[in-house]
Amino acid sequence: MATGQAQKLAKWALMPSVAALSAWAFIPLALTFYFAFLRYNLQDPDNTGWAGFSNFYYFFKDPFFIKDLINTVLLVAGVIMATVVGGVLLALLLDQRFWGRGIVRLLVISPFFIMPTVSSLVWKNLILHPVFGLTAEIQRWFGFAQPFDWFGKLPLFSVGLIVAWQWLPYAALILLTALQSLDEEQKDAAAMDGANRFNYFRYIVLPHLSRPITVVILIETIFILNTFAEIKVTSVGGFAGNLTYLVFSQLNDANDVGMAAAGGLIAVVLANMVSALLVRLVGKNLET
């Protein structure tokens, strides 16, 4: 509520941001859409024209497509499972009182601030390396002559481990914030009602966390769908590539703009399904 003059000013104050974001959201999308139906390879610049759905057809027929799609789903599902379960446990732990809790909290959230290229290379080399890595050393100490080759044998799991390490602090921090907003009186009331620790967690804490857990799942889905640096930098794209990586390699290695655009559109559709849920959830919160 304000005067018409203020409303008018407000409208124009909003314009630069809306125009910029609108250009950012719609121009690439429109061009991706356009390219996806085009014969367009950078190595063969004169051969252009309408391609119909053939880009999509070849994309779906690409042996990497199904594998990478499955990888994408496995990566997202696995990391989310790990971070939500781990996040709840971590949040419960950090909600307790103990000596040095503030410092432990800082230690726990630190991985979130590490740039993806750093964490990828550190994990691949210093931690998981099959000969010189820390885990190899530990295995030898336990008597295994031939330490496990994480990135060789389980590339997707290894990438998942790195991504989970980065996102676990995020889940823990948000769930901890939610936990701390739980009314202290509810705890007292539950104690008066004779609830033991387990019942208190089951009937009070978990329902209270259901909403933040949903938020964590949705936001992590959107970010982890786009996992890229961890795959590229650890050079496992051929085995553990996801959809984002496939689009990149279509552009970068095959130079096929049409195909890459078709893949990009598929990624957009996938992400939109999740983001529609998230936007609805946030929107509900906005009304109240």
Binding site: S17, V18, L21, W24, A25, I27, P28, L29, L31, T32, F35, I222, L225, N226, F228, L243, T244, V247, F248, L251, V257, A260, A261, G263, G264, L265, A267, V268, L270, A271, N272, V274, S275, L278, V279, V282, G283, L286
Partner: peptide, 18 residues
């Protein structure tokens, strides 16, 4: 506001090519 939020959701793979 919700539209602004949704622009953050766009996967970079969809914008990479253009």
């Amino acid at each position: 506001l919700l539209w602004i939020l949704s622009t953050k959701m766009m996967p970079p793979a969809g914008a990479l090519i253009p």
